[in-house]
């Protein structure tokens, strides 16, 4: 690609699109437009601001890698089960191609490991929207279940950052069964007297909402995230009516009593650390 392409008017690059002529050309990598307030932000500014709009505080989606960097102390994240890979269990048409594409973007729908967070040791699972919209397949359920089993055996707390379009339909009933499996592992961890905190990020829906996302001792959410069981489109189709504007946002579910707090990203790590310490988990040297 021509490095100086961005200084040329857009119509010179992509032929004349008349209505676009008066708009400046914005190369994708350098600038990002905030979907909430439409402000153009320098990508580097946005990234330095924890992927939050410097103008309106809209929280951009983060990859699992970025979120691990946000929460885990530097170089402390020790990943487990990274070798587990989704396969086309049922021979579902088109799934192999989808998986191949997804694997180019992210390793899996969730990354799990152990880390320190402000020097407190914890199991951390971070879902990744870049992998088939964080949908829950067999491997997702298995990794989360193993993370809880590991934490239970070592008496560690668990933090999960959720982002998910719901169950992965290409894995059929086996995907549905992950809801029961992960819930069982959460319950065992809970019965052992251990702390589980969920951090709901945009969007958290379907089978993930109806299982481990809603099973935390403490449930936090990032501002203005979609938190739903049935997604807004499904409800609109059923009800044949438009939904209220702020329906199913984290602020909405907070008001309805289903989460404990909405926490901005800038305060997330310190809030989690505080909660861990208050439950008696100590700093490691």
């Amino acid at each position: 690609m021509d490095f100086f392409a961005f200084v040329k008017p857009k119509n010179e690059l992509e032929g004349s699109a008349e209505k676009q002529q008066n708009k400046p050309f914005v190369p994708e990598e350098m600038w990002v437009k905030c979907p909430n307030c439409n402000t153009l932000l320098l990508t580097t500014d946005m990234e330095e601001n924890l992927h939050v709009c410097t103008h309106c505080e809209h929280h951009f989606r983060m990859s699992a890698k970025q979120r691990i960097e946000l929460l885990a102390d530097a170089d402390s994240f020790e990943e487990y089960d990274a070798e587990l890979q989704s396969v086309n269990l049922l021979g579902f048409p088109g799934y192999d191609e989808k998986l191949e594409k997804a694997k180019k973007k992210a390793n899996e729908s969730v990354r799990c490991g152990v880390c320190t967070l402000e020097s407190v040791r914890t199991v951390l699972c971070v879902m990744d929207a870049d992998f088939m919209m964080g949908s829950m397949g067999t491997v997702t359920g298995e990794k989360i279940t193993r993370a809880f089993e590991y934490a239970t055996a070592r008496r560690l707390p668990v933090i999960i950052c959720t982002v998910s379009g719901g169950a992965r339909m290409q894995e059929g009933i086996l995907s549905l069964m992950q809801m029961a499996k992960t819930s069982g592992a959460v319950k065992r961890h809970s019965d052992a007297g251990l702390l589980y905190i969920t951090v709901l990020t945009d969007p958290t829906t379907g089978g993930v909402t109806a299982s481990f996302a809603m099973e935390g001792d403490i449930i936090l959410a990032e501002p203005n995230s979609l938190v739903a069981f049935a997604g807004p489109r499904v409800i609109e189709q059923t009800m044949r009516q438009k939904l209220p504007k702020d329906f199913q946002t984290s602020e909405f579910v907070l008001q309805k009593g289903f989460i404990d707090a909405v926490v901005p990203r800038s305060a997330l790590k310190s809030t989690l650390a505080k909660l861990l310490r208050m439950h008696g988990y100590e700093e490691v040297k």
């Binding site: 809801m179 109806a210 481990f212 996302a213 809603m214 099973e215 069981f229 579910v253 309805k256 289903f258």
Partner: peptide, 8 residues
């Protein structure tokens, strides 16, 4: 809380 009810 449909999701919460099922999860519980």
């Amino acid at each position: 809380g449909q999701g919460q009810a099922i999860a519980e």
